[in-house]
């Protein structure tokens, strides 16, 4: 049986709780085990890296040290956490002196990190470890005619491009196709949503998100599927502001890719927090009604 050490990250506790709920529900429906890393802490995000690098890596490594003792690979759904945890591993493997310093800091908490625990994104886990063909077999309600813009964002494919092509990743496309949905042509699939710029440089971030919404609409998507809490919040939560600033009338649902898979697997929308979205994905929810019949 597949099993992973689960690292939800801070966003999935609150703003991205629908992501957390849907990942847990989908993994459970597919029989993939998730054991939450006990008392996990913030990965440091992009913020700590701007202040003190060694502290950022040391606190990030605390999570990896706990996962190491669980003997499992880590599953990190938040793209930012995913990249930070992977960068921590890379940094530790790069220079023995850095590893030593980080371990000295960890020792202050009675921990040590001596191996390299692999950190994985659920898109990769589902597409590769579980397998697209196996997923196809589990579909209860094929999402025929549902057009989805697959939006990968930055940090799944960059900076290292180890799980997919950096220009044209396809793993999420394959997952969506496996459950009967139609991934539309979406040229900005790896463009940046601005991330934290929505807080610090709103005008810049609004423009980036306008382009992402426009491309989805132009290509006939019923909704955007994301794999990152910040992308989802910017695209959905600031849609009203974008409409106001640029005189548009977008009303485009922005779900997590796991929501699309979950509905096809017969999971109820409320069980995945779909009722918490600001723009209800009516077309997706309609399949849930069909699935019950």
């Amino acid at each position: 049986m597949l099993e992973y050490a689960y690292y939800p990250g801070c966003s999935l506790e609150h703003s991205a709780s629908p992501y957390d709920q849907s990942i847990r529900a989908v993994f459970s429906a597919l029989g993939i085990g998730l054991r939450e890393i006990e008392d996990w802490n913030c990965c440091g995000a992009t913020m700590y890296m701007s202040v003190k690098k060694i502290i950022g890596y040391a606190i990030s490594a605390r999570n990896l040290a706990i996962a190491q003792d669980m003997g499992l690979e880590v599953c990190a759904p938040c793209s930012s956490c995913y990249t930070i945890l992977r960068k921590t591993n890379r940094h530790i493997a790069w220079e023995p002196k850095e590893r030593q310093k980080i371990n000295e800091a960890l020792a202050a908490a009675g921990l040590s990190y001596n191996t390299i625990v692999e950190v994985r994104h659920p898109v990769d886990i589902l597409a590769v470890d579980f397998g697209v063909d196996e997923l196809k077999k589990r579909v209860k309600a094929p999402l025929k005619g549902l057009k989805v813009a697959p939006y990968y964002g930055c940090q799944i494919v960059r900076p290292h491009g180890h799980i997919d092509d950096i220009d044209d990743p396809v793993k999420m496309d394959k997952l969506l196709t496996a459950v009967g949905a139609e991934p539309v042509h979406y040229p900005p699939k790896v463009r940046c949503c601005g991330g934290m710029l929505m807080t610090t440089q709103e005008d810049v971030a609004l423009k980036l998100n306008l382009e992402l919404l426009q491309a989805a609409e132009d290509n006939g998507a019923h909704m955007i599927a994301t794999a990152c809490p910040l992308c989802q919040m910017n695209l959905e939560g600031y849609q009203k502001k974008i409409n106001k600033s640029f005189r548009r009338d977008f009303n485009l649902p922005v779900v997590y890719f796991s929501h699309v898979l979950g509905i096809a697997l017969g999971i109820r929308p409320e069980a995945m927090g779909l009722d918490k979205l600001l723009v209800p994905p009516l077309k997706l929810n309609a399949f849930a009604e069909g699935a019950r019949v």
Binding site: K52, I54, A109
Partner: peptide, 13 residues
């Protein structure tokens, strides 16, 4: 165990 985090931060600093 927030004390663990604080200890790690202090030591790394």
């Amino acid at each position: 165990r927030v004390n663990q985090i604080r200890a790690i931060i202090k030591k790394a600093d």
